[in-house]
Design a protein around this nucleic acid. Sequence first.
DNA 1: CTAAGTGCAAATGTTTTGCAGAATC
DNA 2: GATTCTGCAAAACATTTGCACTTAG
Lengths: 175, 175
Amino acid sequence: MTVATAPEAASDSLTPIGMAVAPLERYREFLASKGQRMTSERTIIVEEIFSTHEHFDADELIARLTRVRGGRRVSRSTIYRNLSLLEEAGLIRKVVRKDDREIFEHDYGYPKHDHLVCRQCGNLIEFHNEAINEVLVEIARQRGFRIEGHRLEVQGLCDSCCRPPQSRPKKLNLL
Amino acid sequence: MTVATAPEAASDSLTPIGMAVAPLERYREFLASKGQRMTSERTIIVEEIFSTHEHFDADELIARLTRVRGGRRVSRSTIYRNLSLLEEAGLIRKVVRKDDREIFEHDYGYPKHDHLVCRQCGNLIEFHNEAINEVLVEIARQRGFRIEGHRLEVQGLCDSCCRPPQSRPKKLNLL
DNA sequence: CTAAGTGCAAATGTTTTGCAGAATC
DNA sequence: GATTCTGCAAAACATTTGCACTTAG
């Protein structure tokens, strides 16, 4: 059982835990199975997405591409088209919706989890709990429902947003 | 412990389980607390929403109002403005997002629950499970997170959409 | 009366789509 | 070489907003 963060033996240079093959390779296979093609834009997108394990929305991804990839950019349409495909391929998934935008994250090579969403600072706090899955499986069984996935967002206030600014009693504003 | 569906003793004619006061009254109080007013449009909206326990989106509500209320209609803007207010008041809540629309349901006078969403027929199947809440409360406690609510949608295929049309072997189409 | 609410039409902002040229297999 | 992709600009769509008029308190 591996708990490491470092790359393991696999077919590519970046192949963390739980990935039989690297994301890019996996995308290529998925595309091939549908008679679709790998392109340089798709490579760039997948590499950027999997270069870090972070939540992102379409705009953030575009920003990252513009910034990081030395100006080499991918059009907005292509981003959207590929986000859909990547989701279909099981490489990413929509986790929550924030400010009218879908937030994505890796769904490949990373253990399943859900999120606490702070309505104040917008932070996403990941958590994993097997009991929830077990409950869902049982409920689904009873109803003859075939589960394909789920999305659980817990709304509220995170630790730091719960209490007023108390750790900064220096410059008091006494109007 | 009441399990009935019929109205109980309360301050209005339509006051099912768990409602200290009827929805309309409750909305009035909420509005008053914010220095806002009750209007005929707001009355119509609340009465229509609580006339049946059904999931709905903005368009469906507008349709229901147009149809049921003998042509007396409320403008789309007013509907949206009030859906937000009603949510803030805790009378309704967004449960899932389907076809790019927010689906609402009663959040007042009805036990908390979550949904199985069939991707095929779009049906929403309600279920209630206390264990999930317990898990969430415990996780939140550990992280110092103050829960205000949650949204859990389980995606998949419902019982009838799981299997192909097998119970209709009469008129076979043998092209 | 005065502040708040409504309806209308126009605006918003994200995501989608049609199409001509570019690229993959 | 044919089919699939991309980028662009325009479209689609649910939801929001500005404004003049109406209405609740």
